[in-house]
Amino acid sequence: MRVKEVADIAGVSVRTLHHYDEIGLLTPEKTTNAGYRVYSDEDLERLQQILFYKELGFPLKKIKSILQDPSFDRKEALEWHRRILLEKRRRLEQMLSLVEQTLQQEKGEITMTNEEKFQGFDFTANPYEEEARKRWGDEAVDRSKARVEEMSENQQQAMAEEMNAIYQKLAGLRRLSPSSPEAQTAIAEWYKLLNTFGNYSLEMFKGLGQMYVEDERFTKNIDSFGEGLAFFMRDAMEIYADRQK
């Protein structure tokens, strides 16, 4: 298929497809002698994956990094997209219901209790817990939660401050190679800290780093300390885990 046909099917502009080609995100399999781009079925599958990530708010640079990762698995990615989108749909339906009830109250049709006014909001749930349970099992997650719950409020605050300090340290090193002595020393501190309330094997530590870039919630939070930090930590954690084996 040529670029105009692909643009029409995918609902994107020809200019967008040209841009994806220019930055190496989606380079068509073939180009005719006249210079026309020709897209294969595999190219269309890659475009679909790009648009899935784009819909979830991923910047193009991160999408490219994810798709070029040798460990990228299309089926796993699609299952992840489905989980995230179902959760977003659930939250949106909950919020929509709350808005509709609030409008009814404004019109005098119903009276809401104070509890009902806030039933659509939930800031207490850990958005990463379900994913962690799927990857490492209930026992490992429950053990980590129990250790945190055993801490006093002051201890939890101190731990949070220490975590933020390491994030800031790593953010200051992210322009270096993740294999550099400075980066590896800092990531070793991260591994040690995580094991004060968890029981992370080297493989789990390595897998956690991968979650930092696969899950946009992780990426957004970590990159608030410095753009690109999530990917830097992923690479540093992988190197550290492999070296310690």
Results as ranks from 00 to 15, higher is better:
L176R: 13
S97F: 14
L173Q: 04
E189K: 11
L194N: 07
L85V: 09
K134S: 09
R133K: 12
L17R: 02
K88Y: 01
F205Q: 03
M95D: 00
M237L: 06
S180Y: 07
G172N: 04
M211N: 11
F121Q: 03
L78R: 15
E55S: 13
A146W: 01
D43W: 07
Y20D: 02
G120V: 07
D41P: 02
E139R: 14
F52I: 10
S97A: 15
G57L: 03
A125G: 08
S71I: 10
K88V: 04
D8V: 12
E22G: 05
T124P: 01
E153G: 02
V148I: 14
Q210W: 05
Q94E: 02
Y39K: 09
E42I: 13
K220N: 06
L176V: 01
I63A: 05
R2I: 08
R74G: 04
I66E: 03
H18S: 04
Y167T: 09
Q155E: 14
K54N: 08
A140Y: 05
H81F: 06
D242Q: 15
M95N: 11
R90N: 13
R143I: 03
F232E: 00
S144P: 00
L85S: 12
G209W: 02
D122R: 12
D242E: 06
M163Q: 13
W80M: 09
L170N: 00
D223H: 06
Q119R: 06
A10L: 12
W80H: 10
T124E: 00
H19C: 02
Q48V: 13
E216R: 13
Q244T: 15
L193M: 08
Y36E: 01
Y53Q: 03
E87L: 10
E87P: 08
S144K: 15
I66A: 01
R143V: 05
E227C: 07
F121M: 09
E182A: 15
V148G: 02
E216A: 14
P127C: 08
M1G: 15
K117W: 06
E115D: 08
A7C: 06
A186V: 08
Q94S: 14
M163W: 12
M112Q: 11
H81M: 02
R90Q: 12
Y240C: 05
L60A: 05
V3N: 01
G207V: 05
E216L: 09
Y191T: 09
R234F: 08
S40F: 01
K245R: 13
M233I: 14
A188S: 13
L17C: 06
M1V: 14
P178W: 07
L176N: 12
T16W: 04
A236C: 07
Q184A: 11
R234H: 10
R147G: 01
M233K: 05
Q119I: 06
Q184Y: 00
G108E: 00
Q104N: 10
F205R: 01
K206F: 05
K245E: 00
M237Q: 10
L26N: 02
E115Y: 09
S40A: 13
D235W: 03
T124K: 11
V3L: 04
G228C: 04
F123H: 09
G35V: 03
Q168M: 08
L208V: 07
K64W: 00
D21W: 11
T185E: 07
Q155V: 02
E189M: 12
E149M: 05
K75R: 14
E214L: 03
R90C: 07
E22K: 15
